[in-house]
Design a protein around this nucleic acid. Structure first.
Length: 422
RNA sequence: GUGGGUAUAGCUCAGUUGGUUAGAGCGCAGGAUUGUGGCUCCUGAGGCCGAGGGUUCAAAUCCCUUUACCCACCCCA
């Protein structure tokens, strides 16, 4: 690395070949699955008004307090690179009045998110999420459909050992009472909590349940459980969902400590946890957020959504994907005249798929065949001065070493035919 | 923001108590075979030893500073 070499900024990792091919395969599978369930893609802005995230994610959350890329632009507006996708989707849902044109809206997105954190395994400052949101459906059937769909995605990608953790956070009817109950529980044990949790008692007491500090974990043993104070509606919603998951044969663990780092969730919340991802073990997470659309200025609209960490998904799925396909044949010209003759055939054949390779560099037969072998082609089509004068091409089967002659005049059609045969 | 580790060729890594011109494997290029791939053999290109400073006759090696990367805490997808 040269002294003045300019490099990517810290934590902004790029995806290079051949990894980029694998990303495309996984992304395509995600799109196919989601579109099969009636979702449509939204391609949204990556830069938003800071206020959007402060209002949706919650200004007491770690994300908003210390992890956002926030700056003033030349007009002194406070802008933020999006740290997650849901806020933007809800903003768009309201801005473009999706709710008025259709009862149910199912939307998905794929793209980079930005959080200013110390990078480590499975965590980057620019990372990518595959996410989806469903608006206008309050039924627990929707929660179940979405969770089963996610499990299907993992199955399609041969990702194993991912466990669904599930909880309900209640709604505005039952959560306030629980919060108060939890608050007084925590206040009694205030001195044994970490400083973060002491601060959280007032603004975000639920978060203390999820703290990983050993002292806090011990202190919250015996804390009031949210699922014991759910209202009847929330209880029915949660047990209805669990019943549907049982019917679908989808395993899950109810985890009453599971709290999301974002404030907007109500009722169902979940995480898909993977055993072999190290410390960053949540590969997908989400839940229901029935109040957020209204809080961001829209009509009251129930909603359910999730996001998948693309990098984390790739760590689980990456090496199980099908190998990359090879080009079918190598065109091997010897001399300028042969190259010139083969060029139009080459470009015509590659219109829809990579059928042929062609070197423009006048390399030796030996090195061209070497390259053809490395590329894994089925055939090499050799055309030199001798073949040109006889109007033929030598067609060498790279596996059997068998060589036949093809008329140069119909070479394009002959290759086309061979290609479609295999 | 807090710890720990690492930094030598495109990649993976050796490099002794400081001592001539810094090494291997893989990869890349060429040749052995004037027009036939994989195996083998030979040859070659490719390095400011992360950067800056210091100690020394002499530094990849010792000291200081700094940066980047990795892992963990934290947070989360």
């Amino acid at each position: 690395m040269k002294k003045n070499q300019i490099k990517t900024v810290k934590g902004f990792n790029e995806v290079l070949p051949p990894e980029s091919f694998r990303w495309r395969m996984v992304e395509d599978k995600f799109r196919d699955l989601l579109e099969g369930y009636g979702f449509a893609e939204l391609r949204l802005a990556m830069l938003e008004s800071t206020e959007l995230f402060a209002r949706s994610i919650g200004d007491e959350t770690d994300i908003v307090e210390k992890e956002m890329y926030t700056f003033l632009d030349r007009s002194e507006r406070s802008l933020t690179l999006r740290p997650e996708g849901t806020a933007s989707v809800v903003r768009a849902f309201n801005q473009y009045s999706f709710g008025k044109t259709s009862e149910i809206n199912k939307l998905y997105y794929v793209g980079p998110m930005f959080r200013y954190e110390r990078p480590q395994k499975g965590r980057y400052r620019q990372f990518h999420q595959l996410g989806a949101e469903v608006f206008g459906e309050a039924s627990f059937y929707q929660d179940a459909e979405t969770l089963v769909m996610l499990a299907q995605l993992f199955h399609t990608l041969s990702v194993e050992g991912v466990i669904l953790h599930l909880n309900s956070l209640g709604c505005e009817a039952c959560r306030p009472a629980f919060r108060d109950q939890l608050k007084s529980f925590l206040l009694d044990r205030q001195t044994s909590l970490c400083s973060d949790c002491q601060r959280r008692i007032q603004e975000n007491p639920l978060r203390a349940l999820d703290c990983k500090n050993p002292a806090c974990r011990e202190a919250v043993v015996g804390a009031p459980q949210i699922n014991e104070s759910l209202c009847d509606d929330c209880r029915d919603h949660f047990s209805g969902l669990c019943g549907l998951l049982d019917d679908a044969g989808l395993d899950y663990q109810v985890n009453s400590q599971l709290v999301r780092g974002l404030d907007y969730y109500t009722r169902t919340t979940f995480e898909f946890l993977a055993g072999d991802l190290g410390a960053q073990n949540a590969v997908a997470a989400g839940g229901r957020y029935d109040r957020l659309v209204e809080e961001l200025g829209g009509k009251p609209t129930p909603a359910f959504g999730f996001a998948i960490g693309f990098e984390r998904l790739m760590m689980l799925a990456g090496d199980k994907l099908a190998p990359l396909s090879s080009p079918f044949a190598a065109l091997v010209p010897l001399g300028e005249a042969a190259l010139r003759r083969l060029f139009p055939i080459h470009v015509n054949l590659n219109r829809d798929a990579q059928v042929t390779t062609l070197s423009f560099q006048q390399k030796s037969l030996k090195s061209q065949l070497k390259k053809a072998d490395k590329d894994g082609v089925m055939y090499a089509l050799i055309v030199g001065p001798d073949e040109l004068s006889q109007e033929i091409a030598i067609c060498r089967n790279m596996r059997t070493k068998e060589q036949t002659q093809l008329p140069l005049r119909n070479l394009e059609e002959a290759l086309q035919e061979l290609y479609h045969e295999c």
